[in-house]
Computed example of a mutant assay.
Amino acid sequence: MAHVQVVSTVFGVGCVENDEIAILDTPFPHAGAVIEATGSLDVLTRCSVRERVALQGATLLAPLGSPRAVWGVGLNYQSKAAHTGRGLPSEPILYLGAPSAVLAPDAEVAVPSGRTVEMDYEGEVAIIIGRRLYRADPEQVWPSIAGITAANDMTARDVMRATATPTLAKSFPGFNPLGASVCTVDEFADRDCIPVRTWLNDELRQDDTSAGMIFSVPDLLARISWFAALEPGDVVLTGTPAGTGQDRGSYLTPGDRIRIEVGPVLPLVTTVAAPSRDHPSAG
């Protein structure tokens, strides 16, 4: 597999080349569509370049569009378990998030008015499926992964306590920023030690690697596949390390800026906007 870092822009799908984006001659609207149709990003390496635009200041769209399925896992880092004092789970704590929660890079997410006062960030490594996984063994997982990106798996902690339902606490519009780019696995120096860092208003809050996961990427995806088929384009969020607002007893407020970095993936930046009532659950 060729080394590729893909973005989606208002001009079309492009590959990042130093400080430029090479806009490709392809009918696909985003990387997610490429993966769903072909199982990888390889086809993009054979596309001609239509034009080049500066990376700095470019408007980037959600690189995966609206994925059909977004899986998540709770308590999957040793550091998070140690901070909470909870025992290590013997099985992954899994949930499905609403695809409508996906947000583009450099966008704003509003506090859901009347629904939460404990809006929190969670920097995570997001895995994009390239080949169908069903009843898979762990060694089958890495060859079936099409790409990796950054995720901010935002959570309304008070909604989580009140409902005991992660899907509800994480599915408000804009609560799942993804991006800014999608990298092939070969872009990472060590696929079993992927760094994830989160800054809140330029203060480093989370700093860990996937080596600190309780259930590794191959183990986690294989376990999901024992019960549900993972299809090309599906996204698996792999958990968050210690350092969230929950760990500090402080939550997001309007004006806060969250920046998440996952290895060579372009930084995923999200800003918290004023409270909004523009969704059906607003009271």
Score class of each variant (00 low, 15 high):
residue 222 A to R: 00
residue 153 D to S: 14
residue 268 L to Q: 07
residue 219 D to M: 08
residue 273 A to V: 09
residue 224 I to K: 01
residue 277 R to A: 15
residue 268 L to H: 05
residue 264 P to M: 14
residue 186 D to F: 04
residue 222 A to D: 00
residue 221 L to E: 05
residue 200 L to R: 09
residue 199 W to H: 14
residue 200 L to V: 14
residue 199 W to F: 11
residue 237 L to I: 14
residue 173 P to E: 12
residue 259 R to N: 09
residue 167 T to V: 02
residue 221 L to N: 11
residue 168 L to S: 07
residue 228 A to D: 08
residue 252 L to Y: 02
residue 189 A to W: 09
residue 140 Q to S: 10
residue 223 R to C: 06
residue 173 P to H: 11
residue 202 D to L: 13
residue 160 M to Y: 07
residue 193 C to R: 13
residue 196 V to Q: 08
residue 225 S to Q: 10
residue 212 G to W: 04
residue 266 L to E: 01
residue 258 I to R: 02
residue 244 T to M: 04
residue 255 G to Q: 13
residue 165 T to N: 15
residue 193 C to N: 13
residue 260 I to C: 05
residue 208 D to F: 08
residue 182 V to N: 07
residue 145 I to G: 00
residue 198 T to S: 10
residue 165 T to K: 11
residue 197 R to H: 08
residue 140 Q to C: 06
residue 158 D to H: 01
residue 149 T to I: 10
residue 198 T to G: 05
residue 241 P to T: 04
residue 267 P to K: 08
residue 223 R to E: 03
residue 241 P to I: 03
residue 231 E to G: 03
residue 270 T to K: 02
residue 208 D to S: 15
residue 277 R to H: 12
residue 263 G to L: 12
residue 183 C to F: 02
residue 242 A to N: 10
residue 204 L to V: 04
residue 255 G to L: 13
residue 225 S to G: 12
residue 164 A to G: 09
residue 216 S to L: 11
residue 258 I to F: 06
residue 249 G to K: 06
residue 259 R to K: 14
residue 235 V to G: 06
residue 197 R to G: 00
residue 161 R to K: 13
residue 197 R to T: 09
residue 231 E to Q: 15
residue 150 A to S: 11
residue 235 V to I: 13
residue 140 Q to W: 04
